[in-house]
Design a protein around this nucleic acid. Sequence first.
RNA 1: GUCCCAGUAGCUCAGCUGGAUAGAGCAACGGACUUCUAAUCCGUAGGUCAGGGGUUCGAAUCCCUUCUGGGACGCCA
Length: 558
Amino acid sequence: MVEQIKTGLAAALQKAIAGAVDKGLINPVEVPEITIEVPREKGHGDFATNLAMQLARSAKMAPRKIAEAVAENLDLAGTPVERVEIAGPGFINFYLQPGWVYGVIPLIIEQDRNYGRLEIGEGQRVQVEFVSANPTGLLHMGNARGAALGDSLASILDFAGYRVSREYYINDAGNQIENFGRSLEVRFLQQLGQDIPMPEEGYHGEDIIDTVKGYIRKYGTGLAEADAVTRRKTLAEYALQEKLTHIRNTLLDFGVVYDEWFSEQSLHDSGAIQRTLDELREKGYIYEHENALWFKATEFGDEKDEVVVRSNGIPTYFAADIAYHKNKFERGFDKVIDIWGADHHGHVNRMKGSMEALGYDRDALQIILMQLVRLYRGGEIVRMSKRTGQFVTLEELVEEVGRDAARYFFVMRSPDSHLEFDLDLAKSQTNDNPVFYIQYAHARICSILRQLQEQGRRLPNVSEINVNVLTEQAELDLLRKLADFPTEIAAAAELMAPHRIARYLHDLAGLFHSFYNSHRVITDDETLSQARLVLVDCVRIVLRNALGLLGLTAPEKM
RNA sequence: GUCCCAGUAGCUCAGCUGGAUAGAGCAACGGACUUCUAAUCCGUAGGUCAGGGGUUCGAAUCCCUUCUGGGACGCCA
């Protein structure tokens, strides 16, 4: 609805400019894209445009003069505009008929779960790859933030009209798997009483001791007789399966479901890596130096070139990653989004450069970098997990604060900011806790609707109510916020910024609580009650839709 | 040394593809429950947008520079 009004105003302005130019009121100019914004100050109208200031330079006229000429030629028939004012340096402010926001009520009731759904994605295919943690261990806070962020972003993009696929890249090849195998072998032999030290670079986590014990329970100790290569390979494959299953379940408990689990090893097995390297070589972006093969990343704006095949003949992680991302585009995705920890930022330019080298649009690959997460408890920073001695795991976090709180806290901040995660706050059931604050708003509305049922009454149909009785400021503010929801979805999708939805939810909940405290919904005034019942039902719908996008529940009782 | 991110109220953070008087939550202080859930609300106070320079009608936002914090710079991933 808001977007429609904006489009209408922009079109009217466009015509007005042309009209003013024809009449000689304005010097002919190139008209820039007309942006209609919502003024921060209510006193500046419902919508405004800075058009006149933008035109001032090319028209060589004072902005206010331009604004006046444009305003005089505005034909606003068919728009809800009541009056137009020129203010400040040359803003054109639009004041709408009071009650224009009532139109959002039937819209929300009718569209219900689809209110806020957009088509700006135009059905383009987008892939969001996130978490992709090494399957050699447990999920830590960085992975957790990535999970919440990636899943929410995927949901938002889907809601905005993209066809979205969630993917997990399994790093099941290369050095780390060799290393993993060696570590498992050591633990295995230790179980048999052999006194072998764990290699310096090995996996020291205690979880793999359990893994090895589990293996022995199932398959016995026959591997002790096997050759080292077989032993390591067998243990690594066994452990990988176990770890992956575990990761999958942990993420499932966190509300994350993937469309695809993509194996790095499959790129080696299928020859995709070799083919990709051949293609780069044919295009002249590969050269040999000190027995290794290098990719000319510097030709694509990076600081230095990068090794793709080591002097021992084994391709690097980067080589696999190029083949992987090429594979993504070959699968037909129009846009590919990766979510990485900020410690990988050095990898961004060469990754995008490699796609450019292969003939893809480097900007079709978008990489979101997340800064670190720091856990706090009792004002003290928490570094270690009590159980594993490693970093606190996602499972432990969910166990402690619950899934909803965890997910909200991870997406409430911009990925760019270091996240201070206050465990005490996330657990607290008070107004300090934004998750409860928001969910409580939803529960309160459900409570009102329950109350209604207990009285043997029902929620009125939209066609039965008179929306014009909703004249309180708190009501109009709520309606305006509800009308803004689709715009907010568009912004969150375009800017890839789920934290905007978190913020929107908090704002909407705040407006509702404020309304709730000053006005009763169910009163003796039947007409007013009916209108307010439908209003709060609209709030319920939007809260529930937005909560859903962040993977949070919308409780009916608290 | 080079590069990336951040620096906004006491604290945690929005706002950053330039717009009008810089916002929110928490903490502080003062109020509101015989009510559809007080897990709530209302009010007060709180600012050199790290410092300096520039670009222009207009800068928290863009450019340059200095400082502070975090991170990356491997034939690891």
